[in-house]
């Protein structure tokens, strides 16, 4: 499978990438690690006329402390997130979820920002960022803006990133004392989750994000509220699928996915000590 022919542009800085986006408009797609975009291009589900390669912008690959926040560059590879001592000690849930993405070869190339910008509800990482209450820094022609994760995912494979903008950083509140669990249910090695649940408990604060339970990555707000009001894990998890519209496919029908969401959320809450 070979992609449709395209024009290749190598970005040498974030500003250069933005100017290339401004020049080419909606004909251009950003290429980071390529592990979401290239398969789509090979299947010819994506046919960008211009590919802007941001994969060499090493200054957007970092993990650093910024006060109460852990700042992770959008081009940080999964492998580097997974093995980062800062990520493991401050937001362990993200390290755990990242270690479940694809397989080692995929994690050597794929990036955190690329996975989030792809906006796939079946991806593991959005659920973890939702549970952790992170936010995204998006750079555009007129400067940067920071978008809370709850406003970031707007639809199936859609985010709030404009066609002239670039995701540059992911910011996550440090939670070194938090307990957490990442529950991924699938039938075969390296598969996407049929359903997944990311759970974080930090004192009174509880975050629950779900994988593959709607047309976009979703927060289980009812579960969080129930935990906050003192409900048991089992009682809180009972509402995990309320109001959600998961897909039905050959792996699982809608009812089974809702069942999985409740079971995995309960297991996650219990593993996180609730």
């Amino acid at each position: 499978m070979i992609p449709v022919a395209f024009e290749y542009e190598l970005a040498t800085s974030a500003e250069h990438a933005l100017s290339l986006l401004a020049e080419h408009g909606d004909e251009a797609k950003l290429l980071a690690g390529g592990h979401s975009l290239l398969p789509l291009m090979k299947y010819r589900l994506a046919t960008p006329a211009v590919v802007v390669d941001i994969g060499r912008l090493t200054d957007l690959s970092y993990v650093r402390e910024d006060g109460d926040v852990l700042a992770i560059g959008a081009l940080t590879r999964h492998r580097d997130v997974e093995t980062s001592d800062l990520v493991r000690s401050h937001v362990g849930l993200l390290a755990a979820a990242t270690s479940k993405v694809g397989d080692p070869q995929v994690r050597h190339r794929g990036t955190l920002g690329g996975a989030l910008a792809h906006g796939d509800p079946a991806s593991d990482l959005p659920a973890a960022i939702i549970a952790l209450g992170g936010s995204m820094v998006i750079q555009g022609p007129s400067g940067s803006r920071e978008v809370p994760v709850d406003d970031f995912f707007t639809g199936f494979l859609e985010t709030t990133i404009g066609e002239d903008e670039l995701l540059t950083e992911v910011r996550i509140p440090k939670a070194p004392e938090a307990t957490w669990s990442f529950q991924k249910f699938n039938r075969r090695a390296q598969d996407w989750a049929i359903v997944g649940a990311a759970v974080m408990v930090d004192g009174d604060r509880c975050g629950v994000g779900l994988v593959n339970m709607d047309s976009r990555p979703v927060r289980a707000g009812g579960v969080e509220a129930a935990i906050a009001s003192g409900a048991s894990a089992a009682d809180a998890a009972a509402s995990a699928a309320d109001g959600l519209e998961p897909p039905g496919d050959l792996n699982a029908g809608v009812d089974y996915r809702c069942h999985l969401a409740r079971v995995l959320t309960r297991r996650g809450l219990e593993e996180a000590g609730r």
Partner: peptide, 21 residues
């Protein structure tokens, strides 16, 4: 389609799937 790994090579010493690069 980056599933089977038959095309695995090393780039800068790390395993990657050369069909997805």
């Amino acid at each position: 389609s980056s599933s089977c790994g038959a095309c695995t090579i090393h780039v800068n010493g790390e395993a990657v799937k050369s069909c997805t690069m």
